[in-house]
């Protein structure tokens, strides 16, 4: 398995620069199965039934006391990490770029589904981690930055925000909508398919080059976040695992059209994202980073 990965890596390196232009008119087998929508223009996206997922409290209901103040700060950090959590962030992302709708959206790793589950055993760290330690990991890898101390004001505010969002959730139970969505692979993912799908389904928002688009006014952060390149998450991030990325993409992307790609298509795009360049894995040495394939390839 390792050998295969290394070979794949070498082939990928040698094929850089050989990528040809795609002809949009050419019929390709991967796209030959059109996504049929019902001719009467009814919705093509599975509609969520009311009550299927937990509904967190509304922003207008944040209490007007000291706790409320802390929650508001936490929300600011979560929504605009580029401004309020600046000293810890190394790239151009905000927490909401991956935890959509301010950490509320089911199947986008919502905070309310996570809060009651920690402390929890995690394979990545091979130990039981607390909620704070989990957030630290997102800072270190997803935001390619440095972890705030567990007793730093930023961390306290973030935990307060998550605590407020999860008002009334049962403790220790994995709620529906937690994490992303499970997927099953039926064939080996292909980067060629991934590239075609990326160009047809994602490029209008994330850019042809995948580097995203900044806001047009001077506010920090991205309107459409980068999927790779120096301002994106690093190689150790959960999103750099082909499977995790595919799970996220399947449930949430293209924005507003979650669950319209098939499992295999999501994996194709996940693999295509994985082969792109992004910041190095901070846990490894430079040499390993340059000569070894990044972690998280498809198993």
């Amino acid at each position: 398995m390792k050998l295969q990965l290394i070979l794949l890596w070498l082939i990928l390196i040698s094929s850089i620069g050989l990528a040809q232009e795609l002809d949009p008119l050419e019929v390709r087998p991967s796209l030959a199965t059109p996504r049929l929508s019902i001719p009467t223009n009814l919705t093509t996206v599975p509609v969520v039934n009311p009550g299927e997922y937990f509904v967190p409290p509304y922003v207008e209901d944040i209490p007007d006391d000291n706790f409320g103040e802390l929650v508001k700060i936490g929300r600011n950090i979560f929504v605009n990490t580029q401004k309020y959590g600046k000293r810890y962030v190394g790239n151009g992302l905000n927490c909401t770029n991956c935890h959509l709708s301010e950490g509320r959206k089911a199947n986008a790793a919502p905070l309310w589904a996570a809060y009651g589950l920690y402390p929890m055993y995690r394979h990545k760290n091979k130990e039981v981690v607390t909620f704070e330690e989990r957030i630290q990991d997102c800072f270190k890898y997803s935001l390619d930055g440095i972890a705030p101390m567990v007793d730093s004001p930023e961390m306290e505010a973030l935990v307060a925000y998550a605590h407020w969002l999860s008002k009334g959730v049962p403790v220790g139970i994995a709620l529906p909508g937690r994490g992303f969505t499970p997927i099953k692979k039926t064939r080996t993912p292909s980067t060629e398919n991934g590239e075609i799908l990326y160009k047809t389904q994602c490029a209008i928002c994330h850019g042809k080059d995948g580097l995203g688009y900044k806001y047009e006014d001077d506010r920090p952060g991205y309107m459409f976040p980068p999927l790779w390149g120096p301002d994106s998450f690093n190689r150790a991030a959960g999103m750099n695992k082909v499977k995790t990325a595919a799970q996220f993409i399947k449930a949430n992307m293209p924005l507003g059209k979650g669950f319209t790609l098939t499992d295999d298509e999501a994996l194709d795009i996940g693999l295509y994202m994985w082969i792109q360049s992004r910041p190095y894995d901070p846990r490894r040495s430079i040499i390993t980073n340059i000569f070894m394939p990044p972690p998280g390839g498809c198993e």
Binding site: V45, V47, V48, P50, Y53, V55, V59, L100, S101, E102, R104, K105, A106, N107, P110, L255, G256, G258
Partner: peptide, 10 residues
């Protein structure tokens, strides 16, 4: 915020 409980983005 959209309607996150229905998956609707803002």
């Amino acid at each position: 915020r959209g309607k996150p409980e229905y998956g609707l983005p803002s």
